[in-house]
Amino acid sequence: MNDDQLLRYSRHILLPEIGVEGQEALLAARVLVLGAGGLGSPAAMYLAAAGAGTLALADDDEVDLTNLQRQILHTAESVGEPKVESGRRTLHRLNPGTRIEPLHCRLEGDALDEQVALADVVLDCCDNFATRHAVNRACVRHRKPLVSGAAIRFDGQISVFDLRGDGPCYHCLFPEGEDVEEVRCAVMGVFAPLTGIVGATQAAEALKLIIGCGTSLAGRLLLLDGLRMQWRSINVLRDPDCTVCASVQRADGDARSLASSP
């Protein structure tokens, strides 16, 4: 780190759990943020402010006037502009030292696979189950930690799905194909600060994973009732018959058994 970086990130460096080594890990990290809306806005801003080296910001949407109530990456002047370009400009002003890669597309197929493979950690800040499941499958394939968040009305949830341990994947908790009601802010509404709370928590989990400090939310689902401002933490287990991660978990277990054999 140069002198400017030592000064900029000094309040991180003062924390013994982070220090110079942890901050250098952040500066070298690449984070994929899927969604530049209500959750992606605070998540990306805290990641950039904290010194994440590269942020790949993916979103195929344009800024709409109704977004401005909660999507703090964007301003009235951004209406009609691709969210990733508006976000790139805001994040560059916040921290010119963070490299922003705007991806104005809905990542899917080989493109999604490529971006997940490049990332150190992936943040799911999107608003539909099809994308969530596609991202989960890619993260399972590449053994990349996935930080998932959701917010609707006054209710939020956050978890970490990390196949490097024994925890579940997203599919274990929310199986694809089940009759799950898809609710969106455009129809149901959302309390503006709720997206900030959930998105900031996603950023915190991502930073901890990169630095290697603390205990992540892997194996736990954190639920927030914003009306009562009450948090609940629920332990979640891996599904041994999961069609997405079971074979990967078995292969990892076999590899560990072979490595420990005399």
Rank of each mutant, 00 (worst) to 15 (best):
L34Y: 03
L221I: 14
R106F: 12
D59M: 11
C139F: 11
A138V: 14
G156I: 10
R250Y: 05
A43G: 02
A76Y: 01
A251L: 10
D225H: 03
L15M: 15
I197Q: 08
P168R: 13
Q5L: 03
K144P: 04
N136G: 14
S257T: 11
F129K: 09
D60L: 05
L47I: 04
I18W: 06
M188N: 11
R184P: 01
A56I: 15
H92L: 03
M229I: 10
A186F: 03
T98N: 02
G226I: 11
C242F: 12
G177D: 13
L94A: 00
F154A: 06
R184S: 14
A251Q: 14
R11P: 00
V180S: 10
A150W: 06
V31I: 12
G19N: 07
H142E: 06
I210Q: 02
V79H: 09
V236W: 08
V116F: 08
A48N: 00
R137S: 15
G22M: 02
P16W: 03
V236N: 07
L6Y: 04
G253K: 11
L217W: 05
V190G: 04
E178L: 15
D60H: 13
C126A: 15
A52Q: 00
A28S: 08
T54N: 01
N95T: 07
Q249T: 13
R137C: 11
V180P: 02
G149L: 09
P193V: 12
C172Y: 10
G214A: 04
P145F: 08
L146C: 12
R232M: 06
L32I: 10
S260N: 02
D254F: 13
E205I: 08
S233L: 10
L6W: 02
G177M: 12
V79N: 08
L32S: 05
F174C: 13
S86K: 07
V122I: 14
E205A: 08
D113G: 13
G80E: 07
P42G: 05
L103T: 10
R250C: 02
S159L: 06
N136P: 13
C169R: 13
R256Y: 01
L34G: 03
G177A: 14
L47Q: 00
I211N: 02
H104W: 10
D4Y: 05
D155L: 11
V180K: 12
A134S: 15
D3K: 09
V20D: 00
P16H: 05
D110K: 12
R8H: 02
R99S: 11
E17M: 04
I210T: 01
C242T: 15
I210R: 01
L6Q: 09
R30S: 14
T131Q: 15
L224H: 09
D110S: 12
G226M: 07
Q23D: 00
N136Q: 14
G149Y: 06
